[in-house]
């Protein structure tokens, strides 16, 4: 187990309206089995010990399912590996002596709250605009009451793998939220439970997405390439159909 020494350039910003800037930190003798977040924990311990303010970053599950650990590492959302969240990225993928630049998601709808933490409530509002199915309360329905073909349930499940982390927005040169919105629309549009509210759903969610100020989709494919859950841009194609037919049929 080789020890690792890195130079970190990290975006520091005290609050949404404060000016921010990069600060450089040297960190040494890292264990290569650490995750990227554990490396930041070590940095923060050092900072606290020397009386400095620790780096604020979002994290929760640390097992790649919650979508909180947002940061852009050397220009790549969640770092250089495909299909990996920052918490699942390990230090063995870095070389001794590397300089690692860490920045927050950059998008107007995602303002920086502090350091690497951004406000992702625009995603919540997109969901509130239609990313749900209305059900009556009562006892849980039988799991197999509505038979669904395997290909369709697989397709819906692939879309549902979206953890709402926002890497698609961070990666897109237009800061577009098309992949997120498309995945959330498709997962419900594919299933029988999603049919009742299908038309209002796509119209409401696309409208909200535009109103939040995200950019448009130019099909660069950067979102799919950087998505930790490898969500396919095919859902964006599906969302386009869904949107046009909802508007035409009314």
């Amino acid at each position: 187990m080789a020890d690792l020494n890195l130079t970190l350039k990290i975006w520091r910003q005290d609050g949404p309206t404060e000016p921010g800037g990069f600060k450089t930190y040297d960190i040494s003798d890292l264990n290569t089995h650490m995750s990227f977040l554990e490396m930041l924990d070590v940095l923060n311990e050092n900072l606290v010990n020397s009386g400095d303010e620790p780096v604020a970053f979002d994290h929760d599950c640390r097992e790649g399912i919650c979508g909180m650990c947002s940061m852009v590492i050397n220009g790549r959302p969640h770092g250089p590996l495909e299909g990996t969240t920052t918490c699942q990225l390990h230090m063995r993928h870095f070389n001794d002596g590397d300089t690692v630049t860490i920045e927050p998601w950059r998008a107007k709808p995602f303002p920086v709250l502090k350091d690497l933490i951004v406000d992702r409530t625009p995603f919540d509002r997109i969901i509130q605009a239609g990313g749900f199915v209305s059900v009556n309360t009562g006892s849980a329905p039988d799991g197999n009451a509505i038979p669904i073909g395997k290909d369709i349930s697989d397709d819906a499940f692939d879309a549902a793998a979206c953890i709402g982390c926002g890497a698609c927005v961070a990666a897109c040169k237009n800061a577009s939220a098309n992949l997120f919105t498309a995945a959330k629309i498709s997962q419900l549009a594919l299933l029988p439970q999603g049919q009742t509210e299908r038309v209002e759903r796509v119209i409401g969610m696309v409208k909200q997405m535009d109103e939040e100020g995200f950019g448009h989709c130019t099909n660069t494919g950067a979102c799919e390439a950087e998505c930790p859950k490898e969500i396919s841009v095919d859902y964006i194609r599906k969302m386009n159909w869904e949107f046009h037919s909802a508007n035409v049929k009314g």
């Binding site: 250089p80 100020g213 950019g215």
Partner: peptide, 24 residues
């Protein structure tokens, strides 16, 4: 419209590793 969606850019641009030059 999309230019306005990212007023502050990245210090390190990673676009070369996830998309084709022409597309950007």
């Amino acid at each position: 419209q999309s230019k306005q969606a990212r007023p502050i850019g990245y210090a390190v641009e990673g676009g070369g590793e996830n998309s084709a030059w022409a597309s950007r």
